[in-house]
Design a protein around this nucleic acid. Structure first.
Length: 695
DNA sequence: CTAGGGTTAG
């Protein structure tokens, strides 16, 4: 580049044009500026298209000031100049200036319209975007896929299903039926409005699909918690010969996180690390979330530390990873670090921060963060923030303050807010207030099973058997069923599911014996049986009846090596006695035990079969990815080149699983501490991320 | 000069 530059005066414009083009592509402002000087000297500045390129370059370097200067000084402009200015301001998120240019534009054409519409969509101003879209049509311009996709995106962002459908119909009249871009936008819009049937309909009838369309439908499944279908579609996509890109992997990871499958997550991580998509902020953030959802905070932090680029979302994800897993202090200090590093927190970051305060009982800190959120960061608290605040007060025992807060909050309290109060009432044994909170939940959500169960527990824990029985009867009348409690554990690639009183497991006798012995042993070190309700513990036919999580843990203990972490999933909340028992078992056996319940992991409420099917499908995905030579070429850096035998199936899987894991993710050190150690205690935060607490 | 798909909470 430099040597070209010192050539004598170029004799033609195309030479400068080509050089500037190159600067634009490499964002090389320095050379651009030198060229600028040269252009001035040679009197070529009057050539509009050269200055246009220069303006673009300034905008690309986020220097809208100098871009504007150049624009103002131009003796002559063309339609490109004006459009570049609009696009430049849209890029730098300055919609005010973009608008001024748009209205002052004498050369206004359909591209100007498309750009300004896009700008308002980006601002979240869907109504304005739609208004402009209307204006554009009134002016007699026929919208193309550019404008239509933009307004569809606005509908997707705001869940405007009606308008979206209207645009769907309209797009046919504009002759855009079957247009890839429009169809993809429609798929996305329907998915974001939770109308998957329509989305699939369009997808299936598209005359042409590309990776963007596939990603749209994959993310649709993922966002609607249909992990199975997401993997199934991904397999189909590979079979169609499409190559996944970094966005595909971000989506797959998000599905894996929702399924809280650590093995899957690690395998994908291994695969991605060897691919060219390992250093994408979205992919890495999704990975943090996978580990966080699986309770592996250390691995989440490793990913976070390894990132070369950070943004608000990646910081928030790590803050939330700590908060969700019970590491309140770490979450808060990371948040402070985030502020010191100059990253701007958003509404979601503060959900994490408040959650962290709630976990660690930091009431004053929580209040002050709530205050700072509005005053310093200008974020209006929404219902989720108020829910966190009620939870914070309630859990710390400030029930009065929680009620006062509900009464004076500017938003209308919803079922979640009253539910948080209800949970606090259970912890702090306040049946009167609990009854009030429950009645409010019932008004809003008459079928809310967990609120009924909570109130039921409150009654029975206070010895009020009558009301407890009445409530049970009411639930039966209303057809509210309590799901049976399932717990499951994976041992040697087999998922073992347990239900209380279910004798079907082949090793059930061993399990019962082991449990009985364990309980005797932990009684010696201080464990006391403490039923939180009569439904909690039954003795039938003279034999103990254990909750499913106890069965699963006992099975884990007798069937896995002593250094292995025991990971249990449960579809319901864990009861107080089980929580306590597990802590003692962990102390006694020196094993790390991680139990995930459905709190913030809604997939666990679903039928276990779905999860197993998803796991099977995932394995197929992985095999296909590894086997396909073509994909390997894209996905693997040539320097790594460790996979010579991509065809020899299982070796590859082992390869992904073992050596790569060791290299990338040092095994989490075994927990030898007693349960009083903060780390272990924090792991149990998983059990009680919500409403129960041991007295 | 304009366009569609991604990560975090509830």
């Amino acid at each position: 580049m430099g040597s070209h530059f010192f050539l004598p005066k170029p004799s033609n414009l195309s030479f400068y044009n080509a050089l500037l083009q190159e600067c634009l592509e490499s964002s090389d402002l320095q050379t651009g500026k030198m060229l600028h000087t040269n252009i001035l000297k040679s009197g070529f500045l009057s050539q509009i298209f050269l200055t246009n390129r220069l303006i673009q370059l300034y905008f690309k370097r986020e220097d809208s000031h100098d871009a504007r200067k150049l624009f103002d000084e131009m003796p002559q402009r063309d339609s490109f100049t004006w459009n570049i200015m609009i696009a430049g301001y849209v890029r730098s998120k300055d919609i005010i200036e973009a608008r001024k240019i748009f209205y002052g534009n004498v050369w206004r054409n359909d591209i100007s319209w498309n750009t300004i519409i896009r700008g308002y969509v980006q601002e979240g101003e869907g109504s304005i975007a739609l208004h402009l879209f209307n204006q554009m049509i009134i002016q007699g311009l026929k919208p193309t896929h550019f404008a239509v996709s933009s307004v569809l995106r606005a509908c997707a962002g705001l869940s405007w299903l009606k308008t979206g459908k209207l645009l769907h119909g309209l797009s046919y009249r504009f002759g855009l039926e079957g247009n890839v871009v429009v169809c993809t936008s429609l798929i996305d819009m329907y998915c974001k409005c939770r109308e998957l049937t329509n989305a699939c309909h369009i997808f299936n009838r598209m005359p042409e699909r590309n990776i963007v369309s596939w990603n749209a439908i994959l993310s649709g499944y993922s966002q609607n918690s249909l992990g199975e279908d997401c993997f199934r579609m991904f397999i189909e996509m590979l079979e169609f010969g499409l190559k996944p890109d970094h966005i595909t992997f971000a989506v797959l990871l998000s599905s894996t996180a929702a399924l809280a499958n650590l093995v899957q997550g690690k395998q994908l991580h291994g695969f991605i690390a060897k691919s060219q998509f390992g250093s994408d902020v979205y992919v890495e953030t999704a990975l943090i979330d996978v580990y966080a959802k699986c309770g592996s905070v250390d691995n989440a932090r490793q990913v976070f530390n390894s990132m070369t680029k950070q943004n608000t979302v990646s910081w928030s994800s790590m803050v939330i990873a700590y908060a969700q897993n019970g590491y309140g202090k770490e979450a808060i200090s990371l948040f402070e670090e985030m502020l010191n590093s100059g990253f701007k927190p958003d509404a979601i970051t503060f959900v994490g921060v408040l959650m962290a305060c709630s976990h660690s009982g930091l009431v004053d800190e929580g209040c002050s963060y709530f205050d700072i959120m509005q005053r310093v960061h200008g974020i209006e608290p929404d219902k989720t923030h108020y829910t966190s605040l009620v939870d914070l007060f309630g859990r710390a025992g400030y029930l009065k303050e929680a009620v006062e807060l509900i009464n004076r909050m500017p938003v209308k309290p919803d079922a979640a807010i009253w539910g948080a109060l209800l949970g606090a009432c259970r912890v702090h044994r306040d049946p009167e207030l609990g009854q009030l909170a429950a009645s409010k939940v019932f008004e809003l959500e008459p079928q809310n099973a967990s609120a009924h169960m909570l109130l039921c527990h409150i009654y029975s824990e206070c010895g009020n058997w009558d009301d407890a029985a009445k409530l049970r009867a009411k639930m039966k009348n209303l057809g509210i069923k309590k799901d049976p409690g399932y717990s499951w554990i994976e041992v040697d690639n087999v998922v073992h599911r347990f239900v209380a009183d279910d004798d079907s497991h082949p090793r059930i006798d061993e399990i019962n014996i082991a449990l009985k012995k364990l309980i005797e042993q932990i009684e010696h070190i201080g464990y006391v049986f403490y039923p939180s309700s009569p439904f909690n513990h039954k003795i039938e036919e003279g034999r103990e009846s254990y909750h499913s999580e106890k069965l699963a843990i006992a099975f884990g203990l007798i069937s896995t090596p002593t250094e292995k972490t025991i990971r249990i999933m449960k579809n319901l909340r864990v009861c107080g006695d089980c929580h306590n028992t597990i802590k003692f078992i962990s102390q006694l056996s020196g094993r790390e035990i991680i139990v995930r319940d459905h709190q913030r992991l809604p997939v666990l409420k679903k039928n276990l079969q779905h999860i197993q099917v998803a796991a099977t499908l995932f394995c197929q995905c992985l095999m296909l990815l590894i086997r396909d030579k073509d994909h390997s070429m894209i996905l693997f850096r040539s320097s790594s080149a460790p996979i010579n035998n991509v065809e020899t199936d299982f070796k590859c899987l082992n390869y992904m699983d073992l050596p790569l894991q060791k290299e990338l993710l040092p095994v989490v050190p075994q927990m030898k501490h007693s349960y009083q150690q903060p780390h272990v205690e924090a792991q149990f935060g998983l059990l009680y991320s919500g409403r129960m607490q041991l007295s």
